[in-house]
Simulated scan of single mutants.
Amino acid sequence: MSDSRDRLPAATRLGRSVLTVSDESAMVAFYRDVIGLSVLSRDGSTTVLGAGDAPLLELRHAPDARPRPTDAAGLFHNAFLVPSREALGAGLARIRDRWSLTGASDHGVSEALYLDDPEGNGVELYWDRPRSEWPRDGEGGIQIGSWPLDLESVAAAADDGASDTVPGGTTLGHVHLEVSSLETAREFYVDALGFDVKTASPKALFVAAGGYHHHLGCNIWNDRSSPAPADARGLSRLDLVVPSSEDLDLIRERLEDAGAAVDERADGLECVDPDGIRIRFRAE
């Protein structure tokens, strides 16, 4: 259970991200062949992909789903965290062979590759440097920067015969959202839910549990002003995993005290964030 009743426990992590997609075949092929996730199950209109036996991404096929309106909040990117620089080098090889990058950055805490999936959802593939090497400010706070990434050095790190799949231990490291208001996002994710602020600026907020650099990013860079409609493609749900049922009880108390509606699910709780994204909570 958490050491403090108003904060998320240190072992909190992301579970899976759920996307509504219209071209199931193209999306499955991208996340399998380019990102390197494995297909874990297919059931009717739903495909689950992951690493090892851990589900990280759920694709829900809705053939009539339309693109998210340009003024609607939603996903900026899903970020898949691989366990080594060698695995990131293998990912770079797959991307260069089968797709194209939209960007790449050295963030000090991590090295990251950026691309878009076939329906325009942002994707990040990254690895973390050891926590002991993360840049810190004078008060010990984490400093996340953005510098050019030496792509050839990352490529050279790949093992000979680089794998077509991400290794076991790959996780959904963080999710970055485009929100309509940083103030309301902070009220929900920090004040009510219990994340800690790691980095904040006038147009972006990064929050985490357990001293991580960020589990969730929120930005207002593109002036999103409304929730996405129910029939839009893109992010429909995030899963957050906490250690115990006692932690779920505390989450329920905090959210209900903040005026959020919390629903029971067979495997936990669910609520909706200020921009209409469903958040599901479950215990390990």
Rank of each mutant, 00 (worst) to 15 (best):
D3P: 12
S4A: 08
R7V: 03
A10L: 08
A10E: 13
A11C: 10
A11V: 01
T20D: 03
T20Q: 11
V21M: 03
E24A: 15
S25T: 13
M27W: 00
M27I: 05
V28K: 02
Y31W: 11
D33L: 05
G36L: 01
L37N: 05
S38T: 15
V39A: 11
L40Q: 11
S41T: 15
D43N: 12
S45Q: 12
S45T: 08
S45W: 06
T46M: 03
G50S: 08
G52E: 10
L57Y: 01
L59F: 05
A62L: 06
P67I: 01
R68G: 00
R68Q: 08
R68H: 02
P69F: 00
A72R: 04
N78L: 06
A79D: 06
P83T: 03
R85L: 09
L88D: 02
G89K: 02
A93K: 11
R98K: 15
W99V: 09
S100V: 10
S100G: 09
L101Q: 09
L101S: 10
L101I: 10
T102I: 08
A104D: 02
A104G: 10
S105M: 12
S105W: 10
S105F: 10
E111D: 14
A112W: 01
A112S: 13
N121W: 00
G122P: 14
D128Y: 08
D128C: 09
P130K: 09
W134A: 01
R136W: 07
R136Y: 07
G141L: 04
S146K: 11
P148L: 10
S153H: 13
V154F: 09
V154H: 08
A155M: 11
D159Q: 14
D160L: 14
S163N: 07
T165H: 13
G173V: 00
S180G: 15
L182G: 05
E187L: 09
E187Q: 14
D191A: 13
A192L: 03
L193M: 12
K198H: 06
K203S: 15
L205R: 04
F206L: 13
F206H: 10
A209D: 05
Y212C: 05
H213C: 07
H213I: 00
H213G: 04
H214I: 00
H215C: 05
H215E: 07
H215D: 07
N219F: 12
I220H: 04
I220K: 03
I220T: 15
W221Q: 13
N222H: 13
N222D: 14
N222Q: 14
D223A: 12
D223G: 06
S226V: 14
S236A: 13
L238E: 02
D249E: 15
I251F: 00
R252Y: 05
R254I: 04
A258H: 11
A258M: 09
A260I: 14
A266N: 12
D267L: 15
V272N: 04
D273L: 00
G276Q: 03
R278A: 15
A283M: 07
